[in-house]
Design a protein around this nucleic acid. Structure first.
Lengths: 352, 352
DNA sequence: CTGAAAGCGCTTACAG
DNA sequence: CTGAAAGCGCTTACAG
């Protein structure tokens, strides 16, 4: 039987191969790898040459096992297909990468069941921490059961189950929903509007309740009344919003402006108004929430509340990293800033 | 000094803790964990109770080290903020999760430098395979240097550097760009158009070259001439496209329809036409490419070529998994299907 | 059916 | 400055 030459390198090269290749101990090679000042210059050079020659690649899993450390962080996202969360994920990954961590990704698609499966699977890989943007309908007890109490947890965006975020035993990062709609409402008031509606979203969503509250507070602070017909609910999609647009004009007096639950709903409202012969940004003012990509290029461009999801991702990463550094500090509850972006959809009220 | 009870469980519980807790060997516990039929029913029950009691969580990294296996796959994405790639990532993660793998995420933000850093970092975690959607301007030699020849590589969407994808020594999955614009052009021809433009994109992008080629082929097959002014370049953004819209009407005869490089450009063209008093979908027909979320809700809704990025993600995952199962098979080069989605933006030519 | 021993690829005291 | 030895948490033959 002819002796075929074996494929160049079937086995991965290890510390032992390098040590043997240049006649030092594995310990010495290890010191070289980790840049220890202990090792002699010439030894170091010899080892480094051999490392390169054999194409060595560090096995971080083995090192982590021995050192009882971790170099990964789990990122569990409720809806990666949503650009908001995709941007958030990009921000997380960017900041984690800079800190020398790798991101273990899990997408739950808004399913609490998949979320449990994903968490149980990721936790077996021993992440140093977990960033969780929970699926709708998450149950905090089940989440904690899956995560355990050894791994720092940061919950983003929504509170977990019933519990209020403020006294949770894990860290939280939430958007300042109330402040966002407060700013939006004040902006419309400053333009001269007095009859302002709150449009879209469902009462049972906590973010919708908060956004509505910010609107109500700002109206109250300005001594403006809120007529019953000015609180219009709708599914948080463009299509549903377009269908509901008419509801704003069912009774007199009709509003002259609307603060919307989010940009999708605001864009839908624009469509709905247009098809009813009204011109958003000219005879009706609209403010959105989120500043999604389309908002800057819609016709007219949408005034909205920017939440800068990529920045929020970086912020989330910083928060877990801080927690990993100080496991015993009390849980932190951070509210992320939001800002008003003025574009053409928010106009002065049409003079009668 | 009063003896404080220590925090419940400072150290993670290991196989050895379980073994000690119910008086069997670590080997037996290991067999229980992996569902071996060898172990006695009563022993199994005893061990499982102890597992639960102590809240054991499996250390997959340790198991992988011993078994010389891997349960992760690296996913390196050029632009996670782009919904197309975010959907792709979601599809990959979904399929990998079903197969028992975890996704190691890396976002390069279109930077070849970051791509090198990300690959070098991820490879140290020993993924079983790598799915790479390359940054623009990637260099194949450098990528291979970082990845090594031990880890299966699937390249998605773009070819790496100069090389044509068809003879690369790694697996590839690309969109059928030519077929997409071919379908789009045939569709317009079937509607009765004879003067059809190709709008947007830059000649130096390989996907643009391919899409343009599909258009040219379809025109030729139908014996239709392509006037010089009908090939209009633009940056692949909505804004630039809107600015270039006028270029279509510089000479006589002007086209009555356009196949666009992508949806962003198509939506920009719509804006540009509208602001020139033309009505897309009524006196000018438009077809896009990608089927991004906005296309179904634009006014008019955009006829386009759907590429189903989430399906492409699942497909990419299946391809690496297959490769991991058969490391020595020849490299595969897969072309993903595309399909025409007809909406209102593609109308018959206005009768003169 | 169960246990003792060796080993995956690394790092860490500890000697010298 | 360098090496021998032990060990991270698992799994895998091999005995019994």
């Amino acid at each position: 039987m002819p002796s075929h030459s074996k494929p160049p390198t079937r086995r991965k090269v290890t510390l032992a191969d390098i040590a043997a290749g240049c006649d030092v101990s594995r310990a010495t090679v290890s010191l070289v790898l980790r840049g220890s000042p202990l090792v002699n210059k010439r030894t170091r050079a010899k080892v480094e040459a051999e490392l390169k020659r054999q194409g060595y690649v560090y096995n971080r899993a083995a090192a982590n096992l021995r050192r009882r450390t971790s170099s990964s962080i789990a990122l569990v996202i409720n809806d990666l297909g949503n650009p908001f969360f995709a941007e958030f994920a990009a921000g997380v990954d960017e900041a984690l990468g800079s800190a020398g961590y790798v991101t273990l990704l899990g997408n739950t698609g808004e399913s609490p069941e998949r979320q449990q499966a994903v968490l149980s699977s990721l936790i077996e890989h021993g992440p140093a921490g977990i960033i969780l943007s929970p699926a709708e309908g998450s149950d905090d007890a089940r989440v904690i059961a899956a995560v355990g109490r050894h791994t720092p947890l940061l919950v983003f965006n929504r509170s977990l189950g019933e519990a209020s975020a403020d006294d949770a035993p894990w860290d939280t990062l939430v958007l300042d929903n109330e402040r966002g709609t407060h700013l939006a409402t004040e902006h419309l008031i400053a333009l001269g509007h007095k009859r302002i509606a709150f449009f879209g979203g469902h009462r049972d969503s906590s973010s919708c309740r908060q956004r509505r509250q910010g609107y109500l507070d700002a109206m109250k602070a300005a001594n403006l009344a809120v007529a019953p017909g000015w609180l219009v609910e709708s599914a948080p999609t463009r299509l549903e919003a377009a269908r509901q647009a008419g509801a704003l004009f069912n009774r007199d007096p009709a509003p002259t402006a609307a603060v919307c639950y989010n940009d999708a709903v605001a864009l839908g409202l624009m469509l709905g108004l247009t098809s009813r012969g009204r011109r958003p940004g000219e005879d009706f003012a609209i403010v959105g929430f989120d500043d999604i990509a389309e908002s800057s290029v819609s016709v007219p461009p949408l005034t909205t509340i920017a939440v800068d999801p990529r920045d929020r991702g970086r912020q989330a990463a910083e928060l877990v990293l801080a927690r990993i550094g100080h496991p015993d500090m009390e849980a932190t509850h951070t509210t992320a800033p939001v800002r008003l972006v003025v574009r053409d959809s928010s106009c002065r009220p049409a003079s009668p």
